[in-house]
């Protein structure tokens, strides 16, 4: 056994900082994402549907030039509600699970990278990819609207873009959690799609039935809706774009009157919790689980 160590073989090497590794992983993930088929497809779908929504609604205003909360904004909110969670949930769900399946996760973690750096870096990279996708999609919409001279306020559109990104962050966080929990990538993506269906349709329809059948009071109805990040996004968008929620009937009116100016904070808190909590749980689970 050779007890001496050849000179120069060991150097006092400091591993890269947290931020540096985060940036490296995020950039890698972003690049991988923007080259991937899902990113291109989703971006294309979002842009094309957004184009359709903008075009149709601009035509529908009948040249009256009247301003207001129009079909464009409603249509875009609807579109975001459908596509953004699906995109973010599936992207998040595929991230860790597919790396594990390919054996890449163990290889990456055998490098001087901590698990938190890897998880957070992937999250940030995917978030950046989603932002890029949203920028392109909304950019196309804005271009159409500017050509059609539609009376959509720029501030409304900016709000909508910002909140869509908030929604993307929340649902991406949930997707990453699914990815960490699942054994297989296919199971994670399946769970993501199922969750998407649940958030988009099942909970709302259930709540609608509950409202009628159980005679929920407005404050109960509102509280239950705040649990769903999609509803939070929708209410926040309406609140931001229209400055009041009475368009949503008694429950919206109740929210406006009861909370008024604090609604921004409340909605923001809901989406922030949806972004932070699942990611934190994912980090906790990920740091304990075997990467193989």
């Amino acid at each position: 056994m050779n007890a001496t160590i050849a000179a120069g073989a060991v150097r006092t090497a400091t591993p890269p900082s947290f931020g540096s590794n985060l940036a490296t992983v995020a950039q890698r993930e972003l690049r991988e994402a923007v080259r991937s088929r899902w990113f291109v497809l989703y971006t294309l779908a979002f842009a094309v549907l957004g184009l359709g929504v903008s075009y149709v609604s601009a035509a529908g205003s009948g040249g009256s030039g009247l301003a207001g909360f129009g079909r464009t904004t409603a249509g875009l909110i609807n579109l975001v509600l459908l596509i953004v969670p699906l995109m973010a949930l599936t992207a998040g769900a595929a991230s860790i699970a597919s790396d594990r399946e390919r054996g890449m996760l163990a290889y990456l973690l055998a490098q001087p990278v901590s698990r938190i750096e890897l998880l957070l870096g992937k999250y940030l990279g995917l978030a950046a990819a989603l932002f890029a996708s949203l920028c392109v999609g909304f950019g196309v919409c804005a271009a159409v609207l500017s050509f059609k001279g539609e009376g959509t306020r720029v501030a409304s559109l900016v709000w909508l873009i910002g909140l869509s990104m908030g929604l993307a962050l929340s649902t991406l966080s949930v997707g990453v959690l699914l990815s960490v929990l699942a054994r297989k990538a296919s199971a994670a993506v399946g769970a993501a799609v199922f969750l998407w269906l649940t958030l988009v349709f099942v909970t709302d329809l259930g709540l609608m039935a509950g409202t009628v059948a159980m005679r929920l009071r407005v404050e109960q109805l509102l509280a239950l809706s705040l649990v769903n990040p999609l509803q939070v996004f929708k209410m926040w968008s309406l609140h931001a774009v229209d400055a009041n929620l009475d368009v949503l009937g008694p429950a919206g009116l109740y929210a406006s009157e009861e909370f008024g100016g604090r609604l921004h904070a409340i909605f923001g808190l809901c989406l922030a919790l949806w972004s932070v909590v699942p990611l934190a749980v994912a980090a906790a689970v990920f740091s304990r689980r075997s990467p193989v």
Binding site: Q27, L30, R31, A33, V34, G65, L66, A67, A128, A129, F131, A132, S133, L134, C135, V136, F138, G139, V140, C141, A142, A143, L145, S146, F147, G149, E150, G151, T152, R153, V154, L157, V158, I161
Partner: peptide
């Protein structure tokens, strides 16, 4: 009646497309 906001909408469109491109470019 809405003041024609075509110019600012156009600027927004350009800005968005550029930032989308910038993110992809950074990647």
């Amino acid at each position: 009646a809405s003041t024609p906001s075509a110019a600012s909408l156009g600027a927004l469109a350009v800005g968005l497309l550029l930032s989308g491109g910038a993110i992809v470019g950074a990647a």
